[in-house]
Design a protein around this nucleic acid. Structure first.
Length: 265
DNA sequence: CATTGTCCCTGGAAGC
DNA sequence: TGCTTCCAGGGACAAT
């Protein structure tokens, strides 16, 4: 499922293909996934491709932006003008020199047209911003007894972390996912902040994670490689890379949660 | 306000 | 073999 590193990888590839290009048409094959008026973006030029949390922002030269959330199985595929849509293609952006397919098997994702260039949604700090400090995390954790993993994934607190990177960051920091957030000590918070940055950077470095049974691919169709570097995610029953203990899988907040019961405290 | 539960959707796996 | 049931999962929204 595309999280910050996957969306960032897509953003970088799309920016190369799209900036300066013109949207000459849009075909909406599944209306529930497109919110807004098609007419508002046809003819506009793309001036930038950005990201906020797990949302892609395509900024246009007519004071409009196209927001895209890929949720679990969304894909954005850059293709030649002549290429035909696949069976999960739900929206087609016709660009002057190609087409961008929005594919989404489970149809949870969405595309939305807004006025302006941002200022939408209720999101917490970006992990790579200067506001993502130990003090900020401490304040966020202090107010809640929820499992720390659920707080990491709460987009209104920290933007962009999903199930994969929450699991990996907690392993990296040696902290149990179910530990109540307010019980973390300062040293643990400091370690966790660093671990979040480490795993997100690793994710970006390897072009995101195309894990088993997941749909993520880059706009050029190639897979990411971060799944080859998972320490805990989808490794239930296998030995811990750090201590040899067996990785355990439990459900936390309805999400698969992986950790080493020996070296995560 | 904080937190938990429900639902959206599909393919693959498991059960019979 | 073929049918039915169950499950995963981000986040909007409703309920507590």
């Amino acid at each position: 499922m595309p999280e910050l590193p996957e969306v960032e990888t897509i953003r970088l590839q799309l920016a190369e293909k799209l900036v300066g290009k013109q949207i000459v048409g849009i075909k909406v094959l599944l209306p529930k996934q497109f919110q807004g008026e098609v007419e508002e973006v046809i003819g506009a030029r793309i001036i930038d491709v950005g990201r906020r949390a797990k949302i892609l922002l395509i900024h246009l030269d007519n004071d409009r932006s196209i927001l895209i959330h890929l949720k679990l199985t969304g894909q954005l595929i850059w293709a030649p003008k002549t290429e035909l849509p696949g069976k999960t293609t739900h929206i087609i952006f016709e660009i002057n020199d190609g087409r961008l397919f929005f594919n989404d098997l489970r149809a949870f994702g969405w595309v939305r047209v807004i006025r302006g260039f941002g200022d939408f949604g209720d999101f917490g700090v970006e992990p790579f911003s200067k506001d993502f400090t130990v003090e900020y995390l401490g304040r966020v954790f202090a107010g809640t007894s929820r499992p720390v993993k659920l707080v990491l994934m709460d987009q209104t607190k920290i933007a962009g972390i999903g199930n994969i990177y929450a699991n990996e960051a907690l392993w990296e920091a040696g902290i149990l996912p179910a530990k109540p957030a307010k019980n973390l000590e300062n040293l643990e918070i400091e370690k966790l902040r660093n671990s979040i940055l480490v795993v997100l950077k690793e994710g970006i470095k390897y072009g995101g994670a195309s894990a088993a049974d997941e749909a993520y691919v880059k706009p050029n169709g190639s897979k990411g490689k971060y799944q080859e570097h998972f320490r805990v995610y989808q490794r239930g029953g296998q030995p811990c890379w750090r201590c040899g203990g067996l990785i355990k899988r439990v459900s936390l907040g309805g999400r698969g949660t992986f950790f080493c019961p020996v070296c995560q405290k």
